[in-house]
């Protein structure tokens, strides 16, 4: 519930900036703590219900950290004992640093129209 209230009041969410973090260390932490096994190495999302995409439109920091600490549904919880605050901030910094993917229109392999 707390989670949804935060989402409903963007002022609360966006008012708080993410703590400083290192994208490089965050990349390592993203791999070490294996966020990537469900969300993919660049947060692209996983198949067959593994985990949703994290990018584009990364969750605002508060929602992001709340989801990681106390997930709203099936995701395993990463509590402070096993994922420090700095690691989480680094992971967030890493995700923010990921280059956007090309647009569908620029990927010929994804043009399925009219093909048999």
């Amino acid at each position: 519930m707390r989670f949804f209230i935060l989402l409903l009041f963007p002022a609360v969410v966006f008012g708080q900036d993410a703590p400083a973090g290192s994208p490089e260390r965050g990349h390592q932490a993203f791999l070490k703590y294996q966020c990537y096994s469900c969300h993919g190495t660049v947060g692209q999302g996983g198949e067959r219900g593994a985990g949703p995409r994290l990018l584009p439109n990364l969750f605002p920091w508060v929602a992001f950290s709340m989801q990681t600490r106390t997930p709203r549904q099936d995701m395993p919880a990463y509590r402070k004992d096993h994922l420090g605050d700095q690691d989480l901030a680094d992971i967030y910094a890493y995700l923010r640093s990921v280059k956007p993917s090309p647009a569908v229109a620029n990927i010929p392999q994804l043009n399925f129209e009219g093909r048999r």
Partner: peptide, 28 residues
């Protein structure tokens, strides 16, 4: 269909290769 294609574009150039790209390359 558009949603699916957009999802498949996500991480298109990632290494290791995304499963969506694997599938799309095979189709082609």
């Amino acid at each position: 269909k558009e949603r699916t294609r957009a999802a498949a574009a996500n991480g298109w150039n990632a290494v290791p290769v995304t499963t969506a790209r694997l599938s799309a390359e095979l189709w082609n």
